[in-house]
Design a protein around this nucleic acid. Structure first.
Lengths: 227, 227
DNA sequence: GACATGCCACTGGCATGCCAGTTGAATGCC
DNA sequence: GGCATTCAACTGGCATGCCAGTGGCATGTC
């Protein structure tokens, strides 16, 4: 077997992506091919291709003849992303349930159970395992396109401020319970139930986020015009 | 308002995409940047970017250091695509049902009804209106990301031979009935029913295709290795 | 001081030249 | 004749130079 040489393009992609999702870049200043190239020690070509890919991934927007900027998510974008998560994670739960549980999923459950039983829940740990659960779910669904779409979506929602927000202990406890319920349906090989529980889980998570947004909510989370 | 100048990149993208989906290109010969550039009367850069975008869209695969080829779909690819359609079209039906029917959808229904009533069904017309129905559905769902994902999927499934296959009159009639059922659920604003009917519709369409594939079915529809 | 004007530094779009790696065919050796 | 070897014609990866369009700032005018 031969090994493909590392591509500068991929390097650029990963590094710029990190810059973007870590909010190290002001959405108001353009990501210039030239300055990025210089900063990363590369030529313009790989940087340019990375920027294109990130644009296609929905992380950047280009204003023709002005520059490329990190995308600002409008409230409508948040709605769209939430709806897409329903589709993708719902299907993942459904498919996983048709195939039954996996060691990965069982692991997550084994970590979740003591958390919900504890008197005061460890919010950070629960959140971490929560992500692991979702990832394991997609692995269990055995659909590469589905997983790829999910990851692209995750990257996008990383642009929204409140994603980083920590849950309240109450909400956390509820989320853990919801995860356990979903897993039960998967282990029981009940696809419809798994999907429905996932939808409910996502809906309550979305509600919690909107509430956390609170007074910050309304319109000007982003620009109004169509891209 | 200013108008953005036409980009050669987009031109190249559209033209190469047409070449690919129209099967004008042998999957065994590489799409060379240089020869395409010459054929299209462009430089390598826009062609290169178009090829990258098509790769990201899943229409092409690159074999490192060997070339870029039109993707061959394995049976597993077909399964993945079918499952994704469940997710996306199911959600579209669900969302459309939360918002109620639209003039577009009503139009389609008005065209479908006489078809199913006729003694001998016009297969081509039914198929045409069928596509229009699905498109109208996504418009009614009002989710740009969802629509984009659907269109990308559609383009991919265009690579599969049997997609072009015409349905039998029986299957056609059934498909039309299924469309009408879905619309009824949407008009009645019953999202769950709309989604479920869509799933059933897609499942039977998939089955019909597999059957049409018949003896051709099994393994070597594509290459085995991971990309 | 306020406003119009023109220039300049910036943006991305694109062509092109060079390089490294792969492949297959022609060639030379046994 | 069969096999190993070399070489030439491809592939994409990347750097870079030039161009057209934009926007903001500095300057000149009233």
């Amino acid at each position: 077997m031969i090994k493909p040489p590392p591509l500068r393009r991929d390097d650029a992609y990963a590094r710029i992506r990190d810059l973007v999702v870590s909010r190290a870049i002001d959405p108001d200043e353009p990501l210039s091919e030239r300055s990025l190239a210089e900063a990363l020690g590369l030529g313009r070509t790989p940087v340019r291709e990375a920027l294109r890919a990130l644009t296609q991934d929905g992380l950047l927007v280009v204003h023709p003849m002005r520059g490329t900027f990190v995308r600002r998510l409008s409230f409508d974008d948040l709605r769209e992303i939430h709806e897409m998560r329903l589709a993708l994670e719902g299907l993942a739960a459904f498919l996983a349930a048709t195939r039954g549980s996996t060691p990965d999923l069982d692991d997550c459950v084994a970590q979740l159970r003591p958390l919900v039983a504890a008197e005061t829940i460890d919010v950070d740990a629960a959140q971490q395992v929560g992500w692991a659960f979702h990832d394991a779910l997609f692995r269990a669904a055995e659909n590469g396109r589905l997983t790829a779409a999910y990851e692209a979506l995750r990257a996008q929602s990383g642009l929204a401020l409140q994603t980083m927000r920590r849950y309240s202990p109450d909400r956390t406890r509820q989320a853990v319970r919801e995860h356990l319920d979903i897993h039960a349906a998967i282990a029981a090989r009940d696809p419809e139930a798994a999907q429905q529980r996932m939808w409910r889980h996502l809906a309550s998570a979305f509600d919690a986020r909107l509430q956390a947004l609170g007074a910050t909510r309304p319109q000007d989370t982003g620009r109004k015009g169509r891209s």
